[in-house]
């Protein structure tokens, strides 16, 4: 809990709510309610995600992860990242710990990044919902562009990151 009290965001948020109390009392109440609501929404997806993390940690051997998503996984690695990313749900923060476990087990950085980008954009389970709200053409065009952009982008970012920086993150992941 030490980390909690070191968080700048905590104090900024509390300060904003405090200031809002004087400007617009109702707005401050709404903001607090909305925060609680956001937290509640997040808590709903917490149990499956963290159970999955635990299961992945004890059941998936390092060799398997390296084969599936490692340096030489090629097309398989990209596909695994795509499937994991697009079928999952919830806010992107939920994906961060999963990404850490993947890195810990030897997954390639570009594949993990592609997984994160898919989590945050192409959502296959609700694609019909997107078609009905935003239209077929819009859905198809935007999803294809996003998938292509993020696929190429993940490998470019991996290059830009450099080996040292990636190793540093993997070290962090190993303590997880």
């Amino acid at each position: 809990m030490k980390v909690l009290f070191k968080s700048k965001m905590l104090y900024i948020s509390l300060a904003i709510i405090f200031i809002l109390l004087f400007i617009d009392y109702n707005l401050a109440i709404d903001a607090t309610k909305s925060s609680v609501n956001q937290f509640y929404l997040m808590i709903q997806i917490v149990p499956p995600i963290f159970i999955l993390i635990g299961l992945m940690d004890v059941w998936v051997p390092r060799e398997t992860m390296i084969k599936l998503m490692g340096e030489k996984s090629g097309f398989i690695g990209i596909s695994v990242a795509f499937i994991f990313g697009t079928f999952a749900a919830g806010p992107l923060v939920g994906a961060f710990p999963l990404a850490m476990i993947m890195l810990k087990k030897g997954a390639r950085y570009a594949n993990v990044l592609f997984f994160l980008m898919m989590w945050a954009s192409a959502k296959i389970p609700i694609i019909f919902f997107q078609v009905t709200t935003l239209g077929l053409k819009f859905t198809v065009v935007s999803n294809i562009i996003l998938i292509l952009m993020f696929l190429v982008g993940s490998f470019i970012v991996e290059k830009l990151m450099g080996k040292k920086e990636i190793e540093h993150i993997v070290e962090k992941a190993k303590q997880y």
Binding site: V3, M9, I16, S35, Q38, V93
Partner: peptide, 12 residues
């Protein structure tokens, strides 16, 4: 501890 301030902020 990272999530609590985050969702407070998102709510605002």
């Amino acid at each position: 501890p990272v999530l609590i301030p985050l969702f407070l902020f998102v709510g605002i």
